[in-house]
Design a protein around this nucleic acid. Structure first.
Lengths: 344, 344
DNA sequence: CTGTTAGCGCCTTCAG
DNA sequence: CTGAAGGCGCTAACAG
């Protein structure tokens, strides 16, 4: 129905009155049954005579009835939503994760609340609170919260963590260690004797993990390692790190992530250092695919799987009602492309 | 409280009983007032004596009361959520848009439901339906639905479109035409006499817009144009288009988007065609920032603003209750970096 | 198998 | 300014 009325200041306002939800009672009347039967027809049809279900469904269809999600949620306490909170949607690490989470939720007819914390713990706390009332559970990806806050939230509602290792809270971890070890061995085999690790954020769980993996792998391969800090994981900090990298005398580098690696790649090109002729470079996360030139050798990241598994785990927990201390680890591996070659 | 109980099959199950929501009644009792007063204290405090509000708030705090969103929604019909549906989260065009939408919603304490349609109209329809019950309004970004379906949905709940131009439905459009014209003029000024447009998906509103803008701008600048189709907007189709591009004899190209342009860039490098020395290249959407080497000249995209404006518009509509026929157009412009130079 | 009867937790008239 | 009562739409025992 379209309504045209005079607004407060005299001008015309066009309003479209939207269909006011048909209720279960109207359907019940139309079908000549009790409200509860209509409810059952939609939730537990096997409790009813097939023909009754049929009659109810016909009436419902005719009236355009559609169950009210909110009312059902209030009554059952289950609303069929899960929340997903990430620090930065725009970081290429997350979109595939989000997408996979979404697909997995969809398979069970769940909806996803998405939250972006802008890397701020305060914002993260706020979002958890805002979501808490309307989701059955939450996935926290690369949370920036303290262990205490996370534990506190976990006491309020089912929680699954991604890339955060807290005892007693279900978590899925991407073990970049395995892939990073492969990277170091790959470089050693190519003859490199000294490499540098271009590090990421000091507070990052992944950075710590990668740094340690490189150190130990290099030690056992007899390769020297130097660390060059690139505070932020960004293109610019990678590019700015190039002088420091070259001054170490190393012939190869592993960067905290692909974005940083791409910055390094650009910096090297500007200085006429050819890759992989004069210098070899490896990224992490494999988020750039083969889009750089030369195509970047990188460590696979499996963020897509992490998203899928996390949601799947959460839905399992919701269904079973139990909390299991799950620690799901995803191994990674080296993806060799064109930025690595024999030591010059 | 931690409970350890024997599970059905005898093994131990550890469960954490979560705090069962404190209700308004408990607060009312504790504060010695009626339930309605507690409700008012939270929604219309000015209707109450300041000291009453105070007493209620104290009691609420002590009990750890937090209003039940679902119950409130059932009662008021407003649940403080909006939905955002996109075709492909992983396409770099969308994350900034999503992020901005999220921030704008957050400013008004709204939560965002995110839906990913995998480019499928069927999935999009399904998501709209699933969301409909629990959001007050919806933003459809680059919808793949037919005009009819969109109109049908718009009749059910408030809708705002991004990059889709349908009369009578509020929409925000990114006009890449202006930027693309700038691109052509830029190339003409550099002396190029023949250019190619590497086109995107035939069904895309943006592709049509860009193609037309290039044609008309080239005509008035006296530049010849050829179209090379790159069916999908992807790195590979860009790279595969390179031979066709070079065989036209053109000295410059504008690509449908940055991802395609990056593929072209790689293809050119493989064929030892130097950029911008031998060939000039311009992308669209500016999603790669300056991360390619050489840094890509591109047309700005403003997807971030589109996301922000769309949500802001939607919230306005919700508040006013009226439907205005808004058509919000965002102009774009050329961002000159290092892939364009004088005709060889 | 189906109807009856209570709520779920909150908001909102309507009286005082 | 505050209390009492009814209802939002649906589900969940409990009877038949």
């Amino acid at each position: 129905m379209v309504v045209i009325e005079a607004g407060a200041r005299g001008f015309l306002r066009i309003m479209i009155k939207r269909a006011k939800g048909v209720t279960i009672s109207q359907v019940a009347d139309a079908a000549g049954v009790a409200r509860s039967s209509v409810s059952r027809a939609f939730t537990k049809p096997d409790m009813l005579l097939p023909e009754t279900v049929d009659r109810i469904m016909k009436a419902a269809e005719a009236l355009g009835y559609v169950p009210n999600h909110t009312a059902r949620a209030l009554s059952t306490g289950r609303h069929g939503n899960v929340g997903l909170i990430v620090p930065d949607i725009a970081n290429p690490f997350f979109p595939p994760l989000i997408q996979a989470a979404q697909m997995e939720a969809d398979r069970s007819d769940f909806c996803i609340f998405l939250g972006n914390t802008e890397e701020s713990p305060k914002q993260e706390d706020k979002l958890v609170g805002r979501f808490a009332g309307q989701v059955e559970g939450l996935v926290l990806a690369s949370s920036r919260l303290s262990d205490e806050r996370i534990r506190a939230h976990a006491a309020q509602l089912p929680l699954v963590l991604i890339n955060r290792d807290i005892d007693g809270i279900p978590r899925v971890l991407i073990d970049s260690g395995s892939g990073v070890r492969g990277a170091v061995e790959h470089l050693a085999k190519l003859g490199h004797r000294k490499i540098v690790y271009v590090s990421g954020p000091q507070t990052s769980w992944s950075n710590k993990q990668r740094r340690n993996a490189i150190r130990s792998a290099a030690a056992s391969a007899g390769v020297a390692v130097e660390i060059v800090a690139a505070s932020l994981p960004s293109y610019n900090s990678g590019r700015n790190a190039v002088d420091a990298i070259l001054s170490t005398g190393a012939t190869a580098a592993v960067a905290f992530d692909d974005v940083t690696a791409q910055g390094v790649l650009a910096g090297l090109a500007e200085r006429r250092v050819s890759v992989p002729g004069d210098f070899s470079l490896i990224g992490c996360d494999d988020v750039l695919g083969a889009v750089t030139y030369p195509a970047l050798t990188s460590v696979s990241n499996r963020s897509r799987e992490a998203g899928r598994v996390a949601v799947s785990l959460l839905l399992d927990l919701l269904q079973s009602g139990a909390i299991r201390d799950v620690r799901y680890v995803l191994e990674t591996h080296l993806v060799v492309r064109s930025t690595t070659g024999a030591m010059p």
